[in-house]
Amino acid sequence: MITANLRDWLLSDAPTSRRQARFASWYKGWLTLRSNTLAMVGLIVLALIILAAIFAPVLATHDPYAQDLGQRLLGAGQGGHLLGTDSLGRDIYSRLLYGARISIYIVLLVAMVAPLVGLIVGTVSGYAGGWADVVLMRITDIFLAFPRLILALAFVAALGAGIENAVLAISLTAWPPYARIARAETLTIRNSDYIHAIRLQGAGPFRIVTRHIWPLCISSLVIRVTLDMAGIILTAAALGFLGLGAQPPSPEWGAMISEGRKYILDYWWVATFPGLAIFAISLAFNLLGDGLRDMLDPKEDNA
């Protein structure tokens, strides 16, 4: 009964309060997302990974840093190690769980920095036009002209190896595409009648950009960020693999593959399980991104 009432309240065509209107629009988005099976698979996988990261201390069977050279390179299931051990005898399963924390930490930091920078640069550039546009866009072009990994390598080399610097380097290379998207969106929105209308109410450029243009850019950015997450994780993993990201003994997935590489022919699981973890999280983000695209598409609700 209560759920049915709640559903009616949420799907009402005539909301009676600001709160109801807001919840209703979220709920409708959620319904669209839920009807997309693949996106839900992505969301569930991500939720599992996040839960694994949060409850890593509970779920882990071993200390991820504890070395036991007597137990090195055990196969899956041997000696009480669910996914075997690596070259220093550390439990791979436990390391994967703790590694999830690092991956999610990287993803969150990059997701907060890069799109925000891109959004600000893109909307300011698009709305202001003129020389501000030219200057900002040429800077963007310069960043875009470098291959992403090479640029990240250069930043890490300059800043020093480490996970924070890897995040910073990835963010610095990731923002230009967002700036491009935000600018393109702004250019189409800028001359629309509803922006004219708010200008005629006397609103200044700061208000127009932050209150009226940003909300419309954010949905396409969210989609793009979600789809890029896989790339970001892979870049982070690549930096880890090259020894420029997370430093040993940290259980970062890329670094784990890098360590396992030496034994890949005889002890395949050492590199394979972290590889599968990266694959799973990348795929999950891609599936979710596709679903979000359907959900946030402004052409929704034409019925």
Binding site: A14, T16, R18, A21, E300
Partner: peptide, 9 residues
């Protein structure tokens, strides 16, 4: 009753 509607409604 129209106060909290979105344009598409």
């Amino acid at each position: 009753s129209f106060r909290f509607r979105f344009p598409h409604q």
